[in-house]
Design a protein around this nucleic acid. Structure first.
Lengths: 331, 331
DNA sequence: GAAAATCACTAGTACGTACTAGTTCGTGGG
DNA sequence: CCCACGAACTAGTACGTACTAGTGATTTTC
């Protein structure tokens, strides 16, 4: 133990131990290209670093080099779906493989708290939603140059086309012989745009099949909106309901059953996202599974491309597939 | 706009603009005590900083002062309960109010990835579980001095007594007249110790009431263990089941109903954690709500106490309360 | 009225790294 | 034999901040 108990080991300590200059230590440890180091020296430096348990000081490194290994992912305020959380895990691993740390963060619109990027000053900031001009200005004044999405650059968007999910839901129910459909969505105002987009897709598929658009209802578990919706749908002759996500599907089923409508015998229900709830509910919920892996790898590649010129990855495709369970059957 | 478009604004720029020295800028902006600054100068510096949109460079600040405003919370590998996630939110806010950023992170035991503390070098690292000696050595070699839990210091633990939850579950069912109880828990091996502790408490309450210990069963939604458990309980005359959490309670209910056992008429079930699932399930699940606010405030206080000598907060108590729903009724 | 104390500042340095601009040495070409 | 050239290094600086050790003024004290 050569520990001086208190001060941390610096590159200068390693240099002294190895009998070389601090610069050489830097060259060896960073594998600086354009610099030739003899094999013996390299080994001595490496051994000294090992022995002293040298870890470069990140703040000093960041100050000098002007970059760090932090990627900040700004999450939207809306509740994250199961598939997006999965996406995060894959993304975290993909970045970790290159020494990057992914930090996630949800800005609180009401809070006056410092945004996380001001404290971390990350190499890259990724947002699921576009940033406001104010936010971009703020980041730039902090020296953050890599922002995704950033109009006018290769990083101008990450959001992908999730069109196939709603299409699959609709086509599946139509294929089962259902003609009169319902659409259920949560009431969270932050989801408004997403609901609109998905509903639009459902409408398109219905129209292509020559059917009528679904009867749309807002459903949540906190009140009896599920019961009311179920009654309204029954009145209108609806035999199948497409739900925005699995949680809403559960609320639809609960509302129906509590109104004496059997699921799936009287009413079929499909969810979206293939969350654990879908498998756990009773009846279990037929749902849409999204394969987010390519999207995650794309985002990781994009981030590292901006941070240090890694090659640009291929644009992603998100594959959606139907997971059949108990909550939907043929008419 | 005095933007030089490229280089970020430094304290020197502000100094030049305000016609003072860089040191004065530092004194004004950091409110350095022991330094007197005339009102006029202070105002000029503040105005200049404002006008140039000056933001101190965090890496430089961290390098110079040897501390930063990052608190790293190391999450356990086990799945987080709803109440702990709530805890995180409160903790985040409490720290944000003092300019600290809370970052969470789950170490992957298999992964060779750099642990997040090596990249962030946070001021404080908090773990829900004790750290290994190896981890502590690693952090110390990175210059991290504030580690919670850290044996032999005021920060030697954070985990609190969650005794009242299981006690409440048991007392409630006994109070409803149930005499023969079951206990259901998930199979995740990472939860083993927690299950053991909670079961121990349930056993104690049963013994105090002069009853027999519950019949313990492992239940999960992926297989038919729920059905098997329900049958076994029925055979043994069990009329009420205590569940480790709400997810397991749902799995118990599903298993029972699929076996033709009615819930709550034939079998009462109580969950733990008061998650959204408990409200959403059918029947809705009677559960235990934990008030994590004080724990969160305690953790925040502890972290800031270590980081910069804020006063030590009071030790926490976690209040548990019963939320009555449909899944449990009197015998 | 001189010494001491206080006020309101400034010059300058250290933090630990990455990297530029050398310097020294050995070797091969002419 | 001298010069050029590359290999293998080193000296030294910049990054932006926080803060110590001053330095003139001005005010207080006896």
């Amino acid at each position: 133990m050569t520990t001086t108990m208190g001060r941390r080991t610096t590159a200068a300590d390693v240099a002294r131990e190895a009998g070389v200059s601090p610069a050489t230590v830097g060259f060896v440890l960073n594998r600086t290209k354009g610099q030739t180091i003899s094999e013996g020296t390299r080994a001595r430096v490496l051994a000294a670093a090992q022995q002293l348990n040298y870890k470069p000081h990140q703040a000093a490194r960041a100050l000098r080099s002007g970059r760090n290994k932090i990627v900040l992912l700004v999450l939207p305020d809306w509740p994250l779906e199961h598939s997006l959380r999965t996406n995060l895990e894959v993304l975290t691993h993909a970045l970790a493989a290159h020494g990057y740390a992914l930090i996630t963060f949800t800005p609180q619109p009401d809070s006056a708290a410092t945004p996380l990027w001001a404290i971390l000053e990350p190499a890259v900031v990724i947002g699921y939603e576009p940033f406001s001009l104010e936010q971009i200005t703020d980041m730039k004044s902090l020296g953050i140059r890599n922002i995704i999405p950033m109009p006018g650059t290769s990083a101008d968007q990450v959001s992908t086309d999730f069109a196939s999910g709603p299409r699959l839901q609709t086509e599946y129910l139509l294929g089962l012989g259902h003609r009169r459909l319902g659409y259920a969505h949560p009431s969270d105002p932050r989801l408004k745009e997403f609901i609109k987009a998905r509903l639009q897709l459902v409408n398109e598929v219905c129209a292509e099949a020559g059917g009528r658009p679904p009867i749309v209802r807002e459903v949540q578990y906190q009140d009896d909106s599920g019961r009311a919706a179920a009654a309204a749908w029954q009145e209108a002759g609806v035999t199948a309901v497409i739900s925005y996500n699995d949680e809403t599907a559960a609320d639809v089923i609960a509302g129906a059953v509590r109104s004496g409508i059997r699921v799936p015998e009287d009413l079929s229900v499909v969810g979206h996202d293939n969350s654990p709830l879908a498998a756990r509910y009773m009846p279990s919920i037929t749902s849409i599974a999204l394969d987010m892996e390519r999207l995650a790898l794309y985002m990781a590649g994009l981030a590292m491309h901006l941070a240090e010129g890694h090659p640009l990855p291929d644009p992603p495709t998100v594959a959606a597939s139907l997971v059949c369970r108990e909550s939907a059957i043929a008419r």
